[in-house]
Simulated assay, not measured.
Amino acid sequence: MTQWIPVLVRLEDLEKVTALLAELEAGRDGSGLENVYEIAEARPTSTDSPGTDATEPWSVEQLARLASSSTATGQRWAKALDVCCDQPGTYLPTSKVAELSGMSITEWRDAPRKISRHLKAHFADVPREADGDLSWPLSAKSMPNHPGEVSWMATTETASRWSEVRHAQA
């Protein structure tokens, strides 16, 4: 970590800056990055009330494409959706999503870092956030009862659509 310096970033730009840093670091050896990622994960991600989501949910077809994805990122998000959709409207911390899905915390933490690039490549048709970014299939939020971890939530509508996808696959 001797080659790192702290940088002040406006809160509204933090997600984009951390995504850029993750992209730059993807080709490096990764030494010392776990602490950086833990700090980045602790950022506040939303001011919405628990159980709400202002973004239009993904369609059944879009969720089905994610469920059948052969990429590591897609498969990890599908596992997280399985967990979060079992408890719609409830924010689950990263550690719980990882535990219940059978992923390591590192595997699950890696998925949100890579989702923006994955969406641009495979899901350019998903709904967009108010800032124009492609929406994620789960809502992310920092919760006071889980400091230092991002918590994840599926809306009731997303859970219903995900259930439809999983039943069609059975």
Rank of each mutant, 00 (worst) to 15 (best):
1 M>P: 03
1 M>S: 15
2 T>W: 08
2 T>S: 12
4 W>R: 12
8 L>M: 06
9 V>C: 06
10 R>E: 15
10 R>C: 13
11 L>H: 04
11 L>A: 15
13 D>V: 09
13 D>R: 08
15 E>D: 13
16 K>N: 14
17 V>N: 00
19 A>G: 14
22 A>N: 05
23 E>T: 07
24 L>D: 13
24 L>S: 10
26 A>M: 12
27 G>P: 02
29 D>Q: 05
29 D>H: 07
30 G>K: 10
30 G>R: 10
32 G>W: 06
33 L>P: 08
35 N>L: 15
35 N>T: 15
36 V>Y: 15
38 E>A: 07
40 A>M: 15
43 R>C: 13
43 R>F: 04
45 T>Q: 11
46 S>A: 08
46 S>Y: 05
46 S>Q: 04
48 D>M: 05
49 S>E: 14
50 P>Y: 01
50 P>K: 07
51 G>F: 02
53 D>W: 06
57 P>F: 15
57 P>G: 06
58 W>G: 06
58 W>R: 01
58 W>I: 09
58 W>K: 00
59 S>G: 13
59 S>F: 06
60 V>M: 10
64 A>L: 14
65 R>Q: 05
66 L>T: 04
66 L>S: 05
68 S>P: 03
69 S>P: 00
71 T>P: 02
71 T>C: 04
76 R>I: 03
77 W>T: 03
78 A>Y: 03
79 K>C: 10
79 K>A: 15
80 A>D: 00
80 A>I: 00
81 L>R: 05
81 L>Q: 02
81 L>N: 06
82 D>M: 00
84 C>W: 00
85 C>N: 01
86 D>G: 15
87 Q>G: 03
90 T>P: 02
91 Y>C: 00
92 L>Y: 01
93 P>T: 00
93 P>F: 02
93 P>M: 06
94 T>L: 11
94 T>F: 02
94 T>Q: 10
94 T>H: 08
95 S>R: 04
97 V>L: 07
101 S>D: 07
102 G>F: 01
105 I>N: 06
109 R>C: 15
109 R>N: 14
111 A>F: 11
113 R>M: 15
115 I>G: 09
117 R>K: 11
118 H>E: 11
121 A>P: 02
121 A>T: 09
121 A>N: 12
122 H>F: 08
122 H>Y: 09
123 F>L: 01
126 V>H: 00
128 R>L: 01
128 R>D: 00
133 D>T: 13
134 L>N: 08
135 S>Q: 04
136 W>Y: 12
136 W>E: 12
136 W>P: 07
137 P>M: 07
137 P>Y: 12
138 L>A: 00
139 S>W: 03
139 S>I: 09
140 A>Y: 06
140 A>F: 07
146 H>T: 15
148 G>C: 08
149 E>K: 04
150 V>L: 02
151 S>N: 12
152 W>C: 02
153 M>N: 09
154 A>G: 03
157 E>V: 12
160 S>C: 01
161 R>V: 03
162 W>M: 01
163 S>H: 13
163 S>P: 03
164 E>L: 01
166 R>C: 04
167 H>A: 08
169 Q>R: 13
